[in-house]
Design a protein around this nucleic acid. Sequence first.
DNA 1: GTTACGCCTTGATCCAGATCAAGGACACCC
DNA 2: GGGTGTCCTTGATCTGGATCAAGGCGTAAC
Lengths: 239, 239
Amino acid sequence: MQRGAVIDSLPMDRNSSLYESVRDHYLFAGLDEDHFDRLAVEMKVKSLEQGNILFHRGDRADSFYYVDGGLIELSLISATGDKKTLEVVHPGRTFGEAVTFMQEARYPVNAEALQPSQLCEIPNRVYLDLLKTNRDACMRLIADLSRHLHARVREIENLSIQNARYRLASYIMDHIVERRGGDQATASLELPRHVIASRLSIKPETLSRLLRSLVDEGIVSIEDRVVFIHSLDRLRLYD
Amino acid sequence: MQRGAVIDSLPMDRNSSLYESVRDHYLFAGLDEDHFDRLAVEMKVKSLEQGNILFHRGDRADSFYYVDGGLIELSLISATGDKKTLEVVHPGRTFGEAVTFMQEARYPVNAEALQPSQLCEIPNRVYLDLLKTNRDACMRLIADLSRHLHARVREIENLSIQNARYRLASYIMDHIVERRGGDQATASLELPRHVIASRLSIKPETLSRLLRSLVDEGIVSIEDRVVFIHSLDRLRLYD
DNA sequence: GTTACGCCTTGATCCAGATCAAGGACACCC
DNA sequence: GGGTGTCCTTGATCTGGATCAAGGCGTAAC
């Protein structure tokens, strides 16, 4: 897997689809075109190859990012080298904005491309300027931070008072792509097993065994990355 | 232990020390007296006895709180009744403000008085009004939320990639009240053991055993709630 | 005094998930 | 075809922390 620095960083093209996408993101909602344009000239486009590391934990946080394509993994690494995936950021979402607004801000996580990815880099100072003049933007950021915080509390809950089986069942149910009838559904596990395992704070071996036991108990069947859920009720109670 | 509703809720006296304390809190910093007064008339004073529950997870979050005296435990409870203490809020600090600013806000945690406690209840709508007219207040809240988020990320890190020994060592070092010489210190564990255990996501029995092993290895000695650290270096590496 | 209750410790045992080790099953390359 | 690399699974074993059970100790009530 290729590691190392970002391979590419360019000004953002005013006529690109990326430009449109960022403008439509809720953090920039309600800006007139001129205003957004003034911000947009400061933004940069970055392309990452799979395995590229965008930033490490502890790096100065001067920018946050909008994901236009690909997947970005936010992770923690222990002294012994174990990795915990906190979150995998999908296209259409931002990351790093939460940490932006502290003095001496440093990223609390590592960010790595799980796939070839296209990002828009938004310097903190640009968004700070927006916040100074735009009360709605402030309120949207505050709501955004509240949501993030809530998600982290749920993660702590999962880790401290739920077991691995429950976390896996939740993960599968969070990735349902199609419901069929009252009690059946299809879920899609698009990520490599080791990433899912890290996201669930278990080892790949354990994930494999838990999936197998779900199959053995007839609760789901699995074909590669697709999970056919035969009983949502039983999956919900799997514990 | 006494459970149940709050016993007391009164208007806030303009001449009380509580009034002064809230006005000095950073979330209200920089307000002129008139402005703060207009907010303050909406605030209420609450007194809780030990064991009183201020709110449950899932309750509508209409207010947040400033702790003037006592200790408030924020916790999660699993389906099987296990409790996880997320945080113990000390005097001079607020809690619940993070969740306030979402539509349909509900508390993500339970709040219970660990000791007889005095609180100031601040209706969300009051602070929202302040945010609308005061850009500095917005920025302070944003910084506040960022800090909370950062703390939660650290908690997730502790839970997922650190073991109980490490968490205990960190906890002790976070409660140092006096350093003596380069490598020695005194820490004070003011909370009951079962609360500390829950904070560390372990059982009281395990906490007891871990403390004992710290003593047996000569790293600390313990007298009731005071821990004498004989070697900070060894405590840091205890793992 | 003694009874009782909360809070903590200690010991014995158990178990979820980690670790160590060994294969598959593919894809890609020569 | 035969290597060789990556990803995943399976089996055997280990272990950190939980659970179950039994005191110990302080203190409040009578």
